[in-house]
């Protein structure tokens, strides 16, 4: 029987130096994500959401431990970690050097494919992922010619093509129109049994509709952690964002909206 995969983060802290001063980006944050959970990290700008994802992916130096299926991620070789974790954030592609969409998604297969050139299996996998995400028709376009929303979908394909166990998405819904957001939310929910996902967002409604569990960060400190309905309440959100929130509840879902 397959062991249920999970990820456990214990007491993560990230510090960096800026002009001689020590800035604490994250302070003693802990969380646990089990399989079939969609985990969302919420918080205002500069609250440490991106830093948390980077720390989990092993891209920044940090205190504390990240356990993947109970194994300390720091002890794992980089190549092994690269096979199971995908970290996806915004990219800026230089014109003139830009790869096509399909070539870019193929680069994501590098950790898992050993040969110098792609095997037919790599191409099959890449096209399958692109079809699921509805970007197969873009495959011969250059990355820098895509609209922001299209690029976001391609980035998700680039994160998924290597068949990771853990998917870390930094603002996957940014620059998307509402329909694309709804589609993205559906995609993430269908994926949740295959890959353990942690994502950040600025859109509280997107989080409430998509995630199963939420961590709210403020100034690098975890403010609230738990199921969506328990955490995304008027008090918590008003306190963290400093604006008034109302939760619309129709019995099925509870969606918080800011009051303008």
């Amino acid at each position: 029987m397959e062991v249920e995969s999970f990820i456990e983060v214990k007491g993560i802290g990230v510090k960096y130096r800026s002009r001689g001063e020590v800035v604490i980006a994250l302070n003693n944050v802990s969380l646990r994500v089990d399989k079939s959970e969609l985990f969302c990290v919420l918080g205002p700008n500069g609250s440490g959401k991106t830093t948390l994802l980077k720390a989990i992916a092993g891209l920044v130096k940090h205190d504390g431990v990240v356990l993947i299926d109970g194994v300390n991620a720091l002890r794992m070789p980089k190549k092994a970690l690269a096979k199971i974790i995908s970290y996806s954030s915004d990219i800026s592609v230089p014109e003139m050097l830009s790869l096509t969409v399909e070539e870019a998604v193929l680069t994501s297969r590098y950790p898992v494919s050993k040969s110098f050139l792609e095997s037919s299996e790599d191409i099959y996998k890449v096209r399958e992922v692109m079809e699921v995400l509805g970007v197969l028709n873009l495959r011969n376009r250059k990355l820098n010619e895509l609209s922001a929303g299209e690029l976001k979908k391609v980035l998700l394909a680039m994160a998924l093509a290597k068949d990771p166990k853990i998917l870390l998405l930094d603002e996957p819904d940014a620059h998307m129109d509402i329909r694309s957001r709804v589609e993205l939310s559906k995609t993430l929910r269908t994926l949740k049994d295959k890959v353990l996902t942690i994502f950040t967002t600025h859109d509280v409604a997107f989080a409430a509709n998509t995630a199963t569990k939420v961590l709210v960060l403020n100034n690098g400190v975890g403010v609230a952690l738990g199921n969506v309905k328990e955490v995304l309440t008027e008090e918590v959100l008003s306190k963290v964002y400093g604006v008034e929130f109302r939760v619309l509840n129709d019995g099925e879902i509870a969606v918080p909206i800011p009051v303008y």
């Binding site: 974790i85 995908s86 990219i91 800026s92 790869l99 990355l143 680039m158």
Partner: peptide, 14 residues
């Protein structure tokens, strides 16, 4: 090829 896309992208690919 991965460096063209970005440093972080290259790093998460190992």
């Amino acid at each position: 090829n991965t460096l063209i896309i970005g440093d972080e992208y290259a790093s998460q690919l190992g």
